[in-house]
């Protein structure tokens, strides 16, 4: 797809609600080409920046792409808008606010303004709580087909899950030289 095709696709916005997944995927590609990401529908800019900062701490850009480049925050926004129920949405957005509250009380600044060591400290704390919640969930009920129940009301579990899903299902990650669907024998 070149720039002209991309523009033509985006012009047809009125037909969007009837669009096939294939067309929606083309539109996402078109927006990347034009450098105009889809407008966010659930996250405000501050929340979006925090999601990106957390995701990028989990999967930072190294010699391969990081979580931001893989479109994690757009995916999180989609799930918040069209997938989560009201309760999950509230848990997620409250959890996001809690991240800033924790960073504020520990380091006197917002998460996005903190150093990578400080970010690591906050996420380690969240991870410890997630592990406790995971053990409690495992002991209290059964998940799908006898699998362990997941702590799916834990904010950090939710965000990690979405980050990893967005990352490993993104086209840009599939194009990384290091990414092998079937590792060489």
């Amino acid at each position: 797809m070149d720039r002209r095709e991309a523009l033509q696709l985006l012009m047809g916005g009125a037909a969007l609600q009837f669009a096939s997944p294939k067309l929606l995927a083309s539109l996402r590609t078109a927006r990347v080409l034009l450098d105009t990401p889809a407008p966010l529908r659930s996250l405000n800019p501050q929340q979006n920046a925090t999601v990106m900062a957390i995701a990028e701490t989990i999967l930072p850009k190294t010699d391969t792409v990081g979580a931001t480049e893989a479109g994690t925050s757009q995916f999180v926004d989609l799930i918040l808008t069209e997938w989560y129920n009201e309760n999950e949405r509230a848990i997620f957005l409250n959890g996001l606010a809690d991240v800033d509250a924790r960073t504020q009380s520990a380091f006197g600044k917002k998460f996005v303004d903190s150093s990578s060591d400080q970010r690591g400290k906050i996420l380690t704390d969240l991870g410890e709580q997630m592990t406790k919640d995971a053990l409690a969930a495992r002991d209290s009920s059964h998940g799908y087909r006898g699998a362990s129940a997941k702590p799916d009301k834990n904010f950090y579990y939710m965000l990690r899950n979405l980050t990893l899903t967005a990352y490993y299902t993104s086209e840009v990650v599939s194009q990384q030289p290091a990414f092998q669907v079937s590792p060489d024998r």
């Binding site: 997944p21 996402r28 989609l78 299902t169 993104s170 086209e171 599939s174």
Partner: peptide
Amino acid sequence: VPPWEVKFHGM
């Protein structure tokens, strides 16, 4: 069809 071409990436 790869996961990035379906809306919810397989979810």
